[in-house]
Simulated assay, not measured.
Amino acid sequence: MKKVNYSFEQLKEDVHKGERVSLAFQDKLYHVIEDSNQWHLADYETDTQQSFDSADELLEQSRIDEKSLQEGWSHIKKAY
């Protein structure tokens, strides 16, 4: 996958709109989804999910490779 010009600010906007966003990090695929007023960062390969009460909590507290999404953003790609 090539790096798509997709900023962290765009991710924030999409998450706040309730859109499903797929992200790739080191050949692993993650999905940001909203379901029943909960926001989730799901890794289906390992069947793990981080769940949060708000979009802001997900954006601030979720972790990929022990880093927040914003901290690791330069290594994360929008999958599609």
Rank of each mutant, 00 (worst) to 15 (best):
T48F: 07
E45S: 05
H31S: 10
L29V: 12
T48E: 15
D35V: 03
D35E: 12
S36P: 01
I33A: 06
L23I: 05
W39L: 10
E19R: 14
E34Q: 06
S22L: 04
Q26V: 01
T46Q: 06
A42Q: 13
D27P: 01
D47K: 06
Q50D: 13
A42P: 01
E19D: 13
K28W: 04
Q38L: 14
T46I: 04
Q49D: 15
D47R: 05
W39G: 08
Q50R: 12
Y44I: 02
L23S: 05
H31R: 08
A42D: 13
K28Y: 07
R20Q: 14
H16Q: 10
N37Y: 07
W39A: 10
T46R: 06
L41T: 14
D43R: 13
Q38R: 15
L41M: 12
D43K: 09
S36K: 09
D35I: 02
T46K: 06
Y44S: 04
L29K: 10
G18W: 00
D27K: 09
V32A: 00
Q26W: 05
S22K: 03
S36F: 04
W39Y: 15
V21C: 03
V21W: 02
W39H: 14
H31D: 13
S36I: 05
Q49R: 13
S22C: 04
W39R: 08
F25V: 05
A24Y: 07
H40K: 15
Y44H: 06
D27F: 02
T48K: 07
D27G: 03
